[in-house]
């Protein structure tokens, strides 16, 4: 296994220790600090219709720094989500760095010199960001950047959990936290299937919601009925399951 692959598998393993939502997000942030040569990490959610804010961090300072962006209304993580691309700032003290005057000042004030914001996408929609903070200036080198991008992909899972916060995770079973480090990744892979995308589109039309929300609903249904995302997706595509009906029947159960 090359070192890049090892890094990815270590990140996945960090997610496998059980827990969902906030707990999983915290775990992933700690893993970023352990594995990616950064000093702090935080995950924020800023999708329309979802509560915006920081959910998950490696520690108190990272969480507060991340939250500053929402207070100030500026910062790399907001830009990463708006543009759907990574915002990598190797040196916040560089003279040409004037994108976020207030936020940059706050970071420099506590000794943070570099910040890397990676968008987290669900169903091709950026819904949040993974923010990485470092005391020393300097870029993420290739392998760290690869690992960061992978961590940002993994962060989609806790964000999906949080967007479906009304779900009863205790009823969802522990099947996916099988401890071999493969659970998070195979769950992500199960959501990246053509039938899931098609079903997402159909649910969007059925419920009048956006793609991320439609995917949350599909996944919620899978959990509640102990099915895979793909099974639910096929049922939708083949018209055996419709969410405009399901919304009514599920409300009463």
């Amino acid at each position: 296994m090359d070192s890049g692959a090892r890094l990815r598998s270590d990140l996945q393993a960090a997610m496998a220790g059980g827990g969902r939502g906030l707990a999983a997000a915290n775990q992933l942030c700690h893993a970023c600090v352990d594995l990616l040569d950064v000093d702090g990490a935080a995950i924020s959610l800023m999708h329309e219709g979802a509560t915006r804010g920081t959910f998950g961090s490696s520690g108190d300072l990272s969480r507060r720094l991340d939250e500053f962006q929402f207070t100030l209304g500026e910062g790399p993580c907001l830009d990463a989500v708006a543009k759907g691309e990574p915002i990598l700032v190797a040196d916040l003290a560089a003279i040409k760095e004037q994108r976020w005057p207030a936020f940059t000042g706050a970071l420099l004030g506590v000794g943070v010199r570099a910040v890397f914001a990676l968008p987290v996408a669900i169903g091709a929609v950026p819904v949040g960001a993974l923010d990485l903070f470092r005391h020393q200036p300097g870029s993420l080198h290739g392998e760290q950047l690869g690992g960061s991008l992978h961590a940002a992909e993994l962060a989609a899972l806790p964000l999906l959990d949080l967007m479906g916060a009304d779900l009863d995770w205790s009823a969802a079973g522990d099947g996916e936290s099988d401890g071999d480090g493969d659970g998070a990744w195979s769950e992500l892979a199960s959501l990246e299937r053509v039938e899931v995308y098609q079903a997402t589109g159909m649910i969007m039309a059925q419920l009048g919601v956006g793609p991320a929300e439609a995917l949350v609903r599909l996944r919620a249904h899978a959990f509640a009925h102990d099915q895979t995302a793909s099974e639910v997706a096929w049922a939708v595509v083949e018209r055996r399951l419709s969410f405009d009906d399901a919304a009514n029947t599920e409300g009463s159960s």
């Binding site: 996408a121 169903g123 091709a124 990246e192 053509v194 995308y197 098609q198 079903a199 997402t200 589109g201 159909m202 649910i203 969007m204 039309a205 059925q206 793609p211 595509v237």
Partner: peptide
Amino acid sequence: LSSRVVLEQAKGILAQTGDLDM
């Protein structure tokens, strides 16, 4: 790949709205 995702989503929307197959 992400264009592909969006394309499949759009197909789903059209299939649902117009009662068409994919």
